[in-house]
Write a protein that binds this DNA or RNA. Structure first.
Lengths: 409, 409
DNA sequence: AAGAATTTGTTGTGCGGGTGGACAAGTACG
DNA sequence: CGTACTTGTCCACCCGCACAACAAATTCTT
């Protein structure tokens, strides 16, 4: 489902062209708009080569020539023509499946959200019910799409463990799903056949923050998502850390206190039992049925209770283990941790500083997501767009044209 | 010091040649000897291209033509000429710096140990003293090297945290070193100037086991090194996990029991306090001054005590956190854990199975190192050889010829 | 305000490197 | 001993990037 890193293969000239075209598109995607001159220096290729690549991208209908950015011009010389994303260029569908609601968006290159819709998801809903309501949202979002704009794929963010080989949802504890092939369900409900990619929400949060959030240019970062469950997405050396099956980053079940409370995983004292949604709800005396809207409740607070401060310290202590293990440059606090950071940020920082080793500690920084609560959604768009950067021509070949008409039938 | 992964750069044809030549050499290195036909199918390039690359490698003096492997021949057809490593081809110096002894070897491509020497290291020795004795071992090991064989570099395995940007030893607790530039010390003692790479011993263990040990072909593995301190080397997606500063994998200071014993890092109940060398020594009533030779003591046991079995369980419990975090396909037990696995392997496995999540657990396997106690040494050779696989021509350009004569002066 | 300086787009040519076909070489099988 | 099969070698070829020269567009200078 995701792009494989090549191993041991040789490079022929066809692969060179593919790689250069994809890399150029990745730069356009990352910057939104970029000049040919910048591309030349970024990619280390000749002006004429860039011109050729840009021309091919235009003839594919992906980009279009833009007037030079009139803004900050520096120095003399002919202004460089910009490469902009075509208005009816390729797009993807991004789905952020939450415990209580689903958000669906049509997203173009550059991470632009073109349309957006959301709906509550039935609590304890069967997978096919959720699939149907997601499909309805997708139809809604595709409504106004230009016919020329090809749909490259669908990306889905899942609050659970996703097998990377085939995108099967192995376990989504808070949806109570086991071994659900949600990609297939959605495709069946749509009556379409396009590439579908699924991944864990924290993994996608990390990816999005790395591509266009606070983590741009930072190659070693961790996105910690504090929701009903606690998970992490890890980017190391600029690449997603997936693990053998795709389950890497399950930090919620780090051993935290062997004498602690029982965890739904069967052990005692997992980190999640101390800092997960239910623990936080308890700390602020919030009724258990409102755990899914915990962030709203938390945002209503203006000063933290001692219990909440203890939770903050526990978050910091857990982060210390994570920082020691991964040595990231950046830790992004997503989910409820976003609200908690406003309240007990100093306790989190103190807990981390107290327990992390000096060397990894000195280079790490804690921040809030740059994309707010859209991290996972935009990450879903990223994995769906990924084939375009690996091989633009091939990805457009498998893309679907005139999706709206196809979905109407 | 290590090869950077390229990011966002374009590929020109010069880079293609570099990459293909390096990749071909990597295959030769991995297999020791390999036929041109195998290279053709492995690299997906044309016969003629492979022939050209092999020819270049031969003219560089790296490889030489070998008669077809007379062994298992299958099917008809002309036997494919082999590509073998040249007798006086490039080599590196590998250094495995331990707490109580240093092992030095001259290693050629294919991981062949050509010469080898070792000596005890003074306890609480100053860095310059250790550097001098390592330099003496290097001179010894280079003694019989053929004059034509160029020295590509020196790789050093360090029992501590090494900053990846410059190879500075930030902290080697059991050598009591802080911020030691050991690479510079050794070079100064030798009076040479060659590329030196340093890395953590567990990281190098992982690398070596991945390249030529039990982890060949397994792209997600962890080498856990139980020595006086406990550390891990992580390979994910076929690449070393380094982290921002190079300190990734410090699993010894995972929070294990908040009510546990104080750790030298300043916290309580780190995993290392339960399963580190000192804890094991205590469990088997071994005098503290023999901790460095703990493996010999352990190998003398034939049945485990209840204390030791509890240690085994604690190892398993800690591994569970690691498995949950990284989702490796393989966990290699190095250092004292190697001996312990013989004694309390079932307890380790049980502890792991008890605490790990089902999904990551089902695909993971525990094993002993395939390279015995040479993992770190061969890993040191690997990082020193690495430049050859990135750009053989450039690496040979900076290599040192006739080292023996230069060291004699 | 006009020319110089600077940077970029465009075009044509050249070169490096992988491809593919033809043929020779070497082995297994009948 | 001849056939089938695979591989090595040589050749012409194609593709893609680099380079140089020129035109275009803007800023800086006088």
């Amino acid at each position: 489902m995701t792009a494989q890193r090549r191993s041991g293969l040789g490079t022929n000239q066809e692969a060179v062209r593919r790689h250069n075209l994809g890399t150029l598109l990745r730069h356009v995607h990352g910057a939104g708009q970029i000049s040919r001159a910048e591309l030349t220096s970024l990619m280390g290729l000749n002006r004429s080569t860039i011109a050729g690549l840009v021309g091919e991208l235009e003839s594919l209908g992906i980009s279009e020539r833009a007037t030079p950015a009139g803004g900050a011009r520096q120095g003399a010389g002919r202004p460089s023509a910009g490469v902009a994303i075509a208005a009816d260029g390729p797009c993807v569908i991004a789905v952020d499946l939450g415990v209580d609601r689903a958000v669906v968006a049509r997203v173009g290159l550059g991470g632009r959200v073109l349309q957006r819709a959301q709906a509550p998801v039935p609590v304890e809903g069967e997978a096919w019910q959720v699939g149907a309501s997601v499909a309805a949202l997708i139809r809604e979002v595709v409504e106004d799409a230009p016919a020329a704009s090809p749909l490259v794929g669908i990306g889905i963010s899942v609050p659970g463990m996703v097998r990377r080989s085939d995108g099967l949802i192995r376990l989504a504890p808070n949806l109570e799903w086991h071994d659900v092939s949600f990609g297939g369900i959605v495709l069946a409900a749509l009556g379409l056949d396009v590439p579908v990619s699924l991944a864990n929400d924290a993994d996608l949060g990390a990816l999005a923050e790395h591509t266009r959030g606070v983590g741009v240019g930072i190659d070693d970062l961790i996105y910690v998502s504090g929701n009903v469950g606690v998970g992490a997405g890890v980017i190391m050396g600029g690449h997603r850390l997936e693990g053998a099956g795709g389950y890497a980053g399950e930090v919620g079940h780090l051993r935290f206190d062997p004498g602690g409370r029982p965890c739904h995983c069967g052990n005692r004292g997992c980190w999640e039992t101390e800092v997960g949604g239910h623990a936080i709800a308890e700390a602020i005396h919030c009724p258990p049925d409102k755990v899914a809207q915990l962030d709203e409740v938390l945002d209503g607070f203006d000063s933290p209770s001692p219990e909440l401060r203890r939770t903050g310290t526990a978050i910091g202590h857990g982060l210390a283990s994570i920082v020691n293990m991964f040595n990231p440059r950046l830790v992004v606090l997503g989910g409820y941790f976003r609200s908690l950071h406003q309240l007990v940020g100093t306790d989190i920082e103190a807990g981390l500083a107290d327990r992390a080793l000096p060397a990894p500690l000195e280079s790490v920084r804690l921040t809030l997501p740059g994309l707010g609560s859209d991290s996972a959604l935009l990450g879903a768009a990223e994995i769906a767009l990924e084939p375009l950067f690996v091989d633009p021509v091939a990805a457009l070949g498998t893309a679907l044209v005139d999706v709206r008409a196809r979905l109407a039938g």
